[in-house]
Amino acid sequence: MRTISRRMADLAQSEIRAMTQACASVKGLNMAQGVCDTPVPPIVLEGAEKAIRDGYNVYTRFDGLPELREAIAGKLAHYNGIEADPETQITVSAGATGAFHCACAALLNPGDEVILFEPYYQYHISALVAVEAVPVPVRMQPPAWTYSLPQLEQVVTSKTKAIIVNSPGNPSGKVFSRAELETLADFACRHDLFVMTDEIYEYFLYDGRRHVSMASLPNMAERTVTIGGYSKTFSVTGWRIGYSVAAQPWARAIGAMNDLLYVCAPAPLQMGVARGIRELPDSFYSNLAHDYQRKRDKFCGALIKAGLTPTIPEGAYYVLANVSRLPGDTGKARAMYLL
């Protein structure tokens, strides 16, 4: 009998996508998927349009156009405190999710255990399962989404290969402080672990918070894979322009996997993003955070008024709320009731 692969049997459609489809079927208001409602910066659109006219319509190098890799390297030095060689350490991929999948496929073996914090981004789990790694969740406690070092020590084993840090977090909105990251860095060094960071929401920071990249901490650049992208920052979720940054041996493996899975990211869209990185002023990013904080406050106020008490996010643009007063035995059942 012809059947789907065992690997596919272990995967399920993202609840985000399932809820989006359910919402569309009843013509509801979709609050399930991270679709930006802000316009694309004109300079980014103009950069992509010009690239199309200028002939950037064929394959790029597997790790992206030099213009984009160099722009990312400059931004990493300026904003993240990370020094990266654009020729050997940066891989442009099909969105941050694609970059993360390439890193997992390149660096993890079947059976390797990977620690991640719950609540987690579902695609992180899916990527781990797809490469037959073993996700090991550590539950954080609301409302501040705290955890303890003993929780980490309890789950680490001889099979543990990596730990995932998502800051600002999807869906918790947690922003890891420098002190928390330093504790995790020490933990990773003691147990010789990779750290995979998802920093896609690095500019979505509220109440005066600052973003700290794990790879900027002492002795962490060699063991950290930094994942980022511009889907959210430039409101181009459909363009699929993300990247990873890693030490040269790991970047070489990630780049080879990126070539196998995606060949390259869309060429003219790479140029549009590169122009945005180079030419948009710092005020663009501070205004972005200000505008989203205003939306956060308005939305959380509405949830409180509705009796669905939220945990106030420190970053990103998702809100988790207490829905226990709604009918249903599970979170999904209550979400369907609300829909």
Rank of each mutant, 00 (worst) to 15 (best):
Y285Q: 03
A274L: 05
N287R: 07
G242R: 03
N258Y: 00
D282H: 12
L260Q: 08
N287L: 12
R240P: 00
L269V: 10
R278E: 15
A289H: 09
A256V: 05
A256E: 07
Y243R: 03
L261N: 02
P281V: 10
P266S: 13
Y243S: 00
P281D: 13
M271E: 15
S286M: 05
V245I: 04
M271N: 09
P266Y: 15
L261T: 01
V263D: 13
C264T: 15
N287A: 09
P281H: 08
G255N: 03
L269W: 15
L260H: 04
P281F: 08
L261V: 06
I254C: 03
N258D: 06
V273H: 08
V245D: 02
V263I: 11
G276I: 15
M271K: 11
A256N: 06
N287P: 00
A253P: 00
F284I: 09
L288M: 12
R240D: 08
Y285C: 08
R275W: 07
V263L: 10
V263N: 07
V245T: 04
Q270K: 11
A251N: 05
A265P: 11
Y262S: 04
V273G: 09
P266C: 12
D259M: 05
Q248N: 02
P281M: 12
A246C: 04
S244E: 06
L280Q: 14
G276A: 12
L280P: 08
V263F: 03
G272I: 15
E279R: 08
L260P: 00
D282I: 12
L260D: 13
N258I: 03
R275I: 15
I277L: 14
I277R: 01
V263W: 04
V263Q: 04
A267V: 07
V263E: 11
E279K: 10
P281W: 09
P268N: 15
I254N: 02
G272W: 08
V273T: 15
D259I: 03
